[in-house]
Amino acid sequence: MNPKGRPEGESAAKRAARRIVKLSRPSTWAGVATFVVLFAAWYVLTTLTQTIGSGRFPSPGETWEAFEQIALTGYADARLVAHVLHSVKLVLLGFAAATLVGVPLGLAMGASRSVEAFVNPAFLLIRPIPPLAWIPLAIVWLGLGDAAKVLIIWFAAFVPAVINSYSGVRTIEPYLIEAARMLGVPRRLFVREVLIPGALPMIFTGLRLSLQACWTTLVAGELIGAIAGLGHVLYQASLDIFPAMIVVGMAAVAITAAVMTIALGVVERRAMPWRSTR
């Protein structure tokens, strides 16, 4: 969550050095400390004092056992690795489709009042319909395969991509646009040199939210008769009332999604080398 500008032409060694410096920063330790404290509290409440019964929330020991079960022998018809890979595939498909459609649409709506007026009513009507509410139609239209799941994920990721790209254009300083107009910058150049760079911070905000929406919707998507995937694990665990496995599933989603977000952050830094924060 802390995008950093990086000077061009930095050597690999310097970058590695920076990374080490970053690791030894107090902020990193504060984060680690938070987790340590939380973990200790979890252990104490569920295991030592048993204030929280295992029917309500699993203990670290139960969670570890559930993890071992799914990682080694498998749960919900597959091992953890297979579930993760399946989910990553669905998320990537949905995210890519949403980005390809959503960002250009948002930019166009932001740049042209006419496009906005034309598209907005239908968009505003569709936008607040939850991805999950599309499940009945997705099943009827696309059946029980991956296509229906990708459609659900697409719906979730599409909206933030559009809104933030749109806002991104609208927050570009007017004098920049005026200047470009007065200089008679051709449309294509204007889009490439003014519109997109100006909107990029918000576009990336949108993409982060999109990616997150993909992951949060995955669970819903995999309600449609999945045979693998982390959402399927969560669904099966909830049907089995297996709190420890639910926690493992949640953690697996969080970790996988976090890794993908870090990757997106790297892309963001590459895309906006000029951007710097305090």
Binding site: I135, P136, I139, L144, L223, I224, G225, I227, Y235, L239
Partner: peptide
């Protein structure tokens, strides 16, 4: 092949 889902689905 068994696929699990709610009755409505």
């Amino acid at each position: 092949t068994i696929k699990s889902m709610g009755q409505a689905e």
